[in-house]
Design a protein around this nucleic acid. Structure first.
Lengths: 204, 204, 204, 204
DNA sequence: AATGAATGAGTCTTCATTCAT
DNA sequence: AATGAATGAAGACTCATTCAT
């Protein structure tokens, strides 16, 4: 029970920070606010995190850990690269839809400038792109994709995805992002795949 | 000459701020640093800008003003939507290549969170997307484009573009972004246009 | 055994505190460090001492108790004031040599400024000076000493002694302080100048 | 005039710090208190000193600069080592008498433990001892002094001097230290015991 | 218009101390 | 008696902004 409580506090701090960082940004959020919002004393934050910056890193880590796992799981359930790609984008939007706070940080803080932030932010992008690249590489082998520069394509696709989510976040998450799944998927499929992918995909 | 000098100072402050904001981020840049880098006294900044935030806005404005104008000019020189689209992306990359500092701010600070910044950042994205949307709308009418959700497509295309530039900036601008013009254009054309656009385009 | 263990803890805390206070100073030593170094929990310190400051007092007390007793014992074994004086200084240096940690606190913290510390520090000096004064008073009676202001002389002698030890401590206790016993004793007994300096001085 | 004012502020801060550090000790004095006492804003301290510790160093430096110069000057006016020695001690006490605040810091903070403090404190002691050593070395050559270990003797003499001043400071500077000039000089010149103590002692 | 010294509100972080277990 | 997680008051330091010159 003691352990549960400890975990609770760490989790509560991360959750509070995630919300506040997402709402107001890292720099405009004070540790005092985080503490209050988490229902702990100011000093307690420093029992779990060595600095405000480390807390931000933890928030990212938490976000990545949870999302990447689900994304990978979802992708692996599909058999063809085409289905994998669609699943990836679908799940990506769903995850955002269900975790608006995480989404906000992921996007709004992704490009801050402190060294540590940059590092983590890069790692986060990398993780996403890695999954996309895997799928695209497979697609290249099966003939799904055109002759493409895989890393560049992955990056562009990731950018398109981010942009869709960013619009939604900028809009206060007032509509349903997942409604844009089809647009995003089509953009990806047409943009990356051979014109005859439909048949190829079906053939598989 | 006195007036010229005054203009000089404003410009120098904006330039210094642009470089520093891009390098270290808005929050990690002090007004003192900007003043020193611009070769003016600390107080002088406040003669030209009412606050640090206003200075950031001015930097964006400056960036936008210059770039948008060139983008619009370039687009107008082309006749078909397809050529316009290609020109847009080509110019976009060229502008970044030639103004790495602006690129850095444009990308790395675009998503900070102070309200005012957010506003400006949104305006900046809006300006880009507006141009893209115009071209896409025209492409829809001429039959270049598939049945698409124009705003969504514009946003995704903008995201892809940003992602390409961001990779480059994150890499320290060590390679030539414009080398990726073809990748980006193809991604856009295939992703957005009809499979038979090549011929259609030629037919126009 | 339980009681023994308790005693153990008190002793261990005092020992750890002595070492740390001596090494890094009172203010730069945290109770957490003391606890860890003593192998007890943070809260345990407060079972034995009501505050950090009280712990410092205890450390001094401990130091004084041990040293004063030995000093008094040693002095009493000697018969003439001269021998007593020499014994006092000899023992003083030996005690330091054998307890460098105590020496460090004794000297480096002796003049901190919290009220309580000042009080204890004064008491510590007092104890030393008292012994010296006793010997000097006796020496005055036996005709050993010149016509002197005993308290002032005791204080000066104590200062000379401290200075010798402080040099040694400042040097990292890298040499043998007791090697300076003769210098210190002679300084005390003869003074710096020749017995016949008067004439010599006059001759100049 | 502007320059005068600047100097004024720096001086006022040093003076305020000197008083407070002396009264309550370095650690128990807050920068806010120093600022208030100096009649400047909290941030102003950091225009002149990069940290609280640097301010302490400056206080020492100031103290040393002023005192050492006077000490050296006074010593040089005398011709014989004996007179020099007496002058040194006389002046030393006079300087303290006239600058009780400096005296307090000099003594009470001399043995704090932060690295920087230790460094400065050592330098301060060194400066004093250097002068004493010079005089003693000369005295050795002219035959004034016995065969002595000059550094050790200088250190002991310095310790005796400090102890006299410390007693006075500990007493709240309530009496006139310079009244002890004769005691200190005699201690230095003749030592504590009679010139003929050897025989006397043997006689016992 | 320009300067740059001065301001002081605001923040992160530390750490002695407490208390539920 | 012992623990160690939690507390929260306190303090050093920063920096955007002002204003007398």
């Amino acid at each position: 029970m003691a352990r549960k409580r400890v975990g609770n506090k760490r989790v509560r701090i991360i959750a509070a920070a995630a919300k506040l960082f997402g709402d107001k940004g890292y720099h405009d959020t004070t540790t005092a606010e985080i503490a209050e919002s988490a229902g702990v004393a100011a000093g307690t934050i420093y029992i779990y995190f060595s600095s405000k910056e480390e807390l931000l890193v933890a928030v990212f880590e938490e976000f990545l850990g949870r999302h990447m796992e689900r994304l990978r799981d979802g992708v692996q359930k599909e058999k063809t690269p085409k289905d994998k790609l669609i699943r990836l984008l679908t799940l990506g939007l769903e995850l955002m839809q269900n975790n608006p706070d995480s989404a906000r940080i992921f996007l709004s803080q992704l490009r801050q400038s402190t060294k540590m932030i940059t590092t983590v932010s890069k790692r986060s992008s990398r993780a996403y792109k890695d999954i996309i690249e895997e799928v695209l590489t497979e697609g290249t082998h099966t003939g799904l994709c055109r002759e493409i520069n895989v890393p560049a394509a992955a990056s562009m696709l990731f950018g398109a995805y981010q942009s869709v989510v960013l619009d939604w976040v900028a809009d206060g998450c007032s509509y349903i992002v997942t409604d844009l799944t089809r647009e995003l998927s089509e953009f990806a499929l047409y943009g990356i795949c051979r014109a005859d992918h439909e048949e190829e995909g079906a053939a598989q």
